[in-house]
Amino acid sequence: MSSEAPIFIGTEVVERVLTWKELVEALRAAYTLDHDEHISPPRTFARGDGASLRALVSVPPGKRFMGAKVFGRGRNQGMNYLISLVEQDTGEIRALLDGNKITAYRTAATSALAVDCLAPHRPLRLGVLGSGAEARAHVQAIGALRKVESLQVYSPTAANRERFARDFEASLGVPCRAVSSAASAMDGVDVGIAAARSRDETPILHADDLHPGMVVVSVGSTLPQQRELDASVIAQCDLIVCDTPDEVVSQSGDMLGARAKGIEFDAKVLSLNRLVRGEIGKDAKLPLFKSVGSALQDIVAAELVYELAIREGFATGLPISFTYKQ
Rank of each mutant, 00 (worst) to 15 (best):
G313Q: 11
G192T: 00
S40H: 09
E4C: 10
R106P: 03
Q77D: 13
L296G: 10
V217D: 10
L270F: 02
L239E: 05
L145I: 15
M1V: 13
L85R: 08
K268Q: 05
V233L: 02
I263M: 12
L296Q: 06
P120R: 07
I7C: 11
D187N: 13
W20P: 10
A170E: 14
V17G: 06
T32L: 15
H121G: 11
A309W: 05
S250R: 12
G132T: 00
P287E: 00
A55D: 00
V305Q: 07
L288R: 06
Q326F: 11
S321Q: 14
V13H: 05
G127V: 08
C237A: 15
M186T: 00
A158V: 14
V217W: 10
L85D: 07
H38M: 12
D298S: 04
L275Q: 06
H35N: 00
S131P: 08
F164I: 06
M79S: 14
V14H: 10
Q152I: 02
G262I: 02
I142D: 08
Y81H: 15
Y105Q: 07
F168L: 07
L318N: 06
S218D: 10
A284M: 09
A104E: 11
F289R: 06
E279P: 09
R197S: 11
L151W: 02
A301P: 06
D298E: 14
S250C: 11
G132R: 08
R54H: 09
D254Y: 01
E12S: 13
A194I: 09
L96N: 00
V14F: 08
